[in-house]
Nucleic acid binder design. Structure first.
Lengths: 238, 238
DNA sequence: GGCAAAACATGACTTTTGTCATGAATGCTC
DNA sequence: GAGCATTCATGACAAAAGTCATGTTTTGCC
């Protein structure tokens, strides 16, 4: 598989405003810009592997990426789904550990790679950027704490409903009365995201469809009734 | 409940060497030291509450503390069990959010409180300290990712065995051939740690005891056979 | 030391979820 | 467009875990 490169100027990147690099001084940004490598990935390609040493930071310019851990049987658990503007691989970099997860492209992606030296240099000499990174990391941690508690306490049905609503926030394209989730996940990926078996996801999505909470649109899902879905996501509506 | 204060000099704190404050310049440490308040807590007292605004950082000098999230039915999920030398409440502080969890004393504790202004000042002017904090946070995140995957994929039996081994690392007192877990958790707390029902924990611990993997010593548990316990913690020993 | 309240324990039962088997639909490749 | 592989779907069943009820033991407290 040959690497297909592309070029883009960070200053002109559409996603700069959504990214942690937003607010960097022109010099810092151009340091990043001048030392990056940008590569196009096809669906199914891996960006990095669990257990390997990180050598830099990935910044997504286009496409979608899943970050997951696999157990011995090869069953995946999706930790994050990353989209343009997101950083990838910073946790292992900052903790100075090996990657704890694998990143695989869900939809053809354009991803920039920043050597860790350059990232660290900008981080070091730029306390404001550092502070933003720390804040982001800690927010992410809060999200993970919430998700852990849900894994511990909620039923699969509740979690699936919750995941639908979660993806609605990130990938929802508002229509009138309904929202199309602009991300094509296989049933298996849904199962990996929710932490359950594929068959269970299939059955529950059918349930939700029967109840007219969602509908299927090709490989994508349309959320028809977010309010009732939220009730499904919570406890037995106390 | 009246506050019972105590005094201690950070420089002389037994846990300094285990703590993130280790390596701080004498000036920075004395800034922390001179602005802290130290309070004694009894078992069962709360240190902070989910949903409230953090005003500083807690540093544990003695005792043990559980940090947990509660669901609507009041069921707890224990995120961390903190021990002397550990920081408490830094996540919410650094993410500038409300507390996402509640902290309750498990065993009578002595805890120092550092106003956030002082913590932030030391953090700001001390890049090395900042870097250590970031590293710690990201390591913690890695642990959480691992735990999430286990919640998603492992059975309760496996998770309970895993929790026993995990607490063995932090609270194990080596004997010959066996290790006493120097922490008294109720069955309910074990359930909150593993993410299951109290009855299930009771049954499984009995199983483990029957299988001579553990024994009960008052309110504490002795790990008799860590190796076989590790097999229980993993998949069906592939 | 005695009493009340927690904590621990156990049985019976239900529900949820996973697993396995099989088949239909869809997509991809030559 | 035929054929193969993958994904999606469904049924039947088993296993895991939760819930409820009840009883016992331990603990804390006056």
């Amino acid at each position: 598989m040959q690497r297909k490169e592309f070029t883009i100027d960070c200053q002109l990147c559409t996603h700069l405003k959504d990214s942690l690099f937003n607010g960097l001084t022109p010099e810092d940004l151009s340091r990043i810009n001048n030392h990056k490598t940008c590569i196009q990935y096809k669906k199914g390609q891996n960006i990095f592997y669990e257990g390997t040493r990180p050598t830099g930071l990935f910044c997504i310019n286009g496409g979608k990426v899943k970050v997951f851990k696999s157990n011995v049987q090869g069953k995946e658990f999706i930790l994050y789904i990353a989209k343009p503007g997101d950083f990838l691989g910073y946790r292992a970099l900052l903790s100075e550990e090996f990657y704890g997860a694998t990143a695989t492209v869900l939809e053809d992606a354009k991803i920039c790679f920043i050597q860790k030296e350059n990232f660290f240099e900008v981080l070091q000499k730029n306390p404001v950027f550092m502070k933003k990174v720390v804040k982001q990391v800690c927010q992410q941690m809060g999200i993970m704490e919430e998700r852990m508690a849900e894994l511990a306490h909620k039923s699969v049905r509740e979690r699936l409903a919750g995941s639908l609503l979660m993806l609605k926030e990130s990938y929802g394209m508002e229509g009138d009365e309904s929202v199309l989730l602009d991300i094509a996940l296989s049933r298996e990926d849904w199962a990996s995201l929710v932490g359950t078996a594929t068959e269970t996801v299939i059955r529950l999505l059918s349930d939700f469809k029967s109840d007219e909470l969602i509908s299927f649109e090709g490989k994508k899902i349309r959320v028809l009734d977010a309010k009732r879905l939220a009730k499904q996501a919570d406890l037995i509506v106390a």
